[in-house]
Amino acid sequence: MALLKVMLLLGLGVSVNSDVSLQKRIIGGHNCDDTDRLYHVRLEVTNGQTTTICGGSLINPKWILTTDTCWKSGEGWYSQVVLRVHSRTGGRKISGIQGKPVVYAPEGWHHDIILLKLPRQQIDIPLAPLPDCSNRPKIGDTVQLAGEGATTTGPNNRHLSNAAAAPHLQCVDMNVVQLSHFLQPYGRLFSASAPNKDACYGDAGSAVVFNGMIYGVISPGLPVYACERPVLIMDVCEYIGWIRRTIGHK
């Protein structure tokens, strides 16, 4: 299933290069407020030649929520977590995670959502509030997406896979256009869209926020050209029991 996800990404125009292969970018957004999203995490995974950068969210002093596609492991791969990237303090780097990523795979294949356990608690960073699943976003509701990638596209509005990252975390508002549904190989998703706005290479794994809580995680499904179709978002409420059990929340 991991191979299938990689093949889908390659089919959607993701390039692998010797510099940085960014997993989605925000287009048509704005600088996030300096006091918001302090829980945002950057994941950097490299094999010495290719570096993949994704987003994530600190939902517990020791746990990060992100996508399965963002994480690579095995011989030659090195992972690093960067905290406090949005508080303009230069970031705090943590090498590796404790144990293996916790995956959701009840059917025998990985849904595109994982939990990463940090080697030590982070007691001075605000946490992303988990959702109130009795009040989920409805069709037409506004949700906020974010990411660290570049804000431009290439010729003919084509998504770029190796542009320079934006100097400031970008936020963008979109409207929910499709409620929770099942789509293999990702899992349970909802979708959001807005004219001339998109999430692109670099934003996968970042939080989708509604009423100040994390209701979604940006998934990497992506067309070749920007603003062609709604953004796919892993539906956190569909996984909330697994999340709470894993991190020890009741």
Score class of each variant (00 low, 15 high):
G11L: 06
L12S: 15
S15M: 11
D19R: 14
L22T: 03
I27D: 05
T35Y: 13
D36A: 15
V41Q: 00
L43M: 11
G48D: 02
T52E: 10
I53K: 05
L58E: 04
I59W: 06
W63S: 01
T67L: 07
D68T: 14
T69N: 04
S73M: 06
R84F: 08
W109I: 02
I114L: 12
L116I: 02
K117R: 15
L118G: 04
R120H: 13
Q121C: 03
I123D: 15
I125M: 01
A128Q: 00
A128G: 04
K138L: 11
G140F: 01
T142F: 06
V143F: 06
E148W: 13
E148R: 08
A150I: 08
T151W: 00
P155W: 00
N156Y: 01
N157L: 05
N157F: 03
S161E: 04
A166N: 15
P167R: 09
H181L: 05
F182V: 03
F182H: 09
L183D: 13
L183H: 08
Q184T: 11
Y186E: 00
Y186T: 09
S193C: 01
C200R: 03
Y201R: 12
G202V: 09
A207W: 07
V208H: 03
G221A: 13
L222F: 01
C227N: 15
V231T: 14
M234T: 15
M234V: 15
V236Y: 04
V236A: 01
E238T: 12
G241F: 03
W242L: 07
G248I: 06
